[in-house]
């Protein structure tokens, strides 16, 4: 149980996917302008991450032992098809939820965080529960940073920023400061 909690916390804040591993930066820049969209994107992220973790575990346990060199290709195919299937299922089961997620689901295929999760999980040799906890933590971390950044950007809209700093440059510098702050969580890991 202890390990599961630590995997969750470490993936969420200490080794945060966005601020520590620089994963999922495209959606981080793209959809972090409003808190409401950031929350939806985060929810979609968590969902796809968990489903991917399950499929990665199945692949690793039953199939890839026989063909390790096909790892990357099968992961990317699985992720792309999982996203596709999830999109169709949501559209069928809950059109309301589908409208809420909108264009975010297909975007997730090219989110490097998902592929990284699959590879990381394999390299660390996580079992089923550990993988799930890792995926939940990573998703929670992505959501946390997206919402933090969106809230900051909503505030910035009303403050006077130098003309040249508007846009990507400012977002990156804010991300740097956030990343500095998150490094403080590193102390959590040295406690054990």
């Amino acid at each position: 149980m202890d390990t599961l909690v630590w995997i969750f916390i470490s993936a969420m804040v200490v080794n945060n996917f966005t601020l520590f591993y620089f994963l999922g930066l495209c959606p981080f820049m793209g959809v972090s302008a409003r808190v409401s969209t950031a929350l939806r994107m985060g929810a979609a992220d968590i969902f796809v991450l968990v489903v991917t973790a399950v499929f990665t575990w199945i692949l690793n346990t039953f199939i890839l032992g026989f063909a390790p060199h096909l790892r990357l290709i099968s992961f990317i195919v699985v992720i792309a098809s999982v996203v596709q299937v999830v999109e169709m299922a949501i559209r069928k089961l809950s059109p309301k939820l589908f409208r809420e997620f909108g264009m975010f689901l297909p975007l997730i295929t090219t989110n490097c965080a998902i592929l990284y999760l699959a590879i990381f999980q394999t390299n660390r040799g996580y079992n089923f529960l550990e993988g799930l906890s890792f995926a939940l933590g990573a998703g929670a971390g992505l959501t946390l940073t997206l919402v933090l950044m969106a809230a900051l950007r909503e505030q910035i809209e009303f403050s006077s920023v130098p003309e040249i700093a508007k846009g990507a440059a400012l977002v990156f510098i804010i991300a740097g400061i956030l990343s500095l702050a998150f490094m403080g969580f590193g102390g959590l890991l040295s406690q054990i």
Partner: peptide
Amino acid sequence: VIMSLPPGGFFTIGFILLGFASYRH
């Protein structure tokens, strides 16, 4: 040391973009 750590990456690209923007301006 901070420049080799993750925050340094964000700061570097942020300031490079800032430089480009100011040049264009």
